[in-house]
């Protein structure tokens, strides 16, 4: 029997060539990204578990520096058309976001083993889950209030703060002219009737604090609008291949 196409997802990648400091928050399809810390004070004051946040731009030749324990590495993507898992996604390559966290007492935000230390020794670069060695890393170094690194709300708000910051860039990326993308990938959910029916089962974090998984966010790999698998009783949820590869889940680990 012939294959059946159950749905299409297009991911357009826009390669970022320079990430620099400036007075405004701006990203262009030609590959220029400007970072400003101007919205950080308002973001910090809106989160009751967060004491302070600093952003560092880590260029590819600057890996020899201290990092607090790493909560997540996040692709910067947005929906240009449709919802997560279908339609068109715009994503940035050459750059990614990183969240690190420690509390005011100096306690690293971790569950079982933490990765603070010299960045170049604490990441295996060029793995699927880690930055390319040529990427610019936008590092969100969060200082949580005392003890908040071990409560669910602390790491959640660290992720949410980063998400809201990135949303400013996502809004600009939605309007990028698709013709200017540096790469275009098309993915199909294919049903192959008569072939072996296989399901992937992924056991994911569900025990609390940073050991959590956010599902169904509004934006790919986002936080806002999503819900925690803990709040859903850790019950199994099915997602399609395209939903998964578009970023319908966000690691809170």
């Amino acid at each position: 029997m012939a294959d059946i196409d159950l749905g299409r997802l297009v991911i357009r990648a826009f390669d970022i060539k320079s990430v620099s400091w400036g007075d405004e928050m701006k990203v262009t399809p030609q590959g220029e990204m400007i970072i400003s810390k101007s919205m950080l004070p308002d973001l910090v004051s809106s989160m009751d578990t967060i004491e302070a946040v600093d952003i560092r731009l880590i260029q590819p030749d600057e890996h020899d520096q201290w990092t607090n324990t790493i909560l997540d590495i996040i692709p910067i993507s947005t929906k240009a058309l449709g919802v997560v898992g279908e339609g068109i996604t715009h994503t940035l390559t050459g750059v990614c976001a990183m969240i690190t966290a420690v509390d005011t007492e100096g306690k690293q935000c971790h569950e079982f083993g933490s990765s603070e230390g010299n960045l170049k020794e604490k990441i295996i670069f060029d793995n699927p889950g880690t930055p390319h060695s040529t990427d610019v890393i936008i590092s969100f170094d969060v200082t949580l209030k005392a003890g908040m690194g071990q409560e669910r709300k602390g790491p959640y708000q660290a992720h949410l703060l980063c998400d809201r910051f990135l949303q400013v860039y996502r809004e600009q990326m939605k309007n990028f002219d698709g013709k200017l993308c540096s790469a275009r990938n098309e993915f199909h959910n294919i049903s192959r009737p008569g072939k072996k029916r296989v399901v992937i089962i992924r056991e994911v974090a569900g025990q609390g604090a940073m050991y959590d998984m956010q599902l169904f966010p509004h934006e790919p790999s986002g936080v806002e609008g999503g819900r925690s698998i803990i709040d859903m009783g850790n019950m199994p949820i099915l997602v399609t291949p395209n939903e998964y590869r578009d970023g319908i889940l966000h690691s809170m680990q």
């Binding site: 996040i74 692709p75 889950g129 192959r192 992924r202 099915l238 291949p241």
Partner: peptide, 27 residues
């Protein structure tokens, strides 16, 4: 990481195999 899920090798390998009808991913 969220990046790992975005580039997940398991999904890539299984979904590309033409002998397999991948029904979905259960989380």
């Amino acid at each position: 990481t969220s990046m790992h899920h975005f580039r997940d090798p398991l999904l890539d390998v299984v979904s590309a195999d033409e002998d397999i009808d991948l029904l979905g991913i259960i989380l």
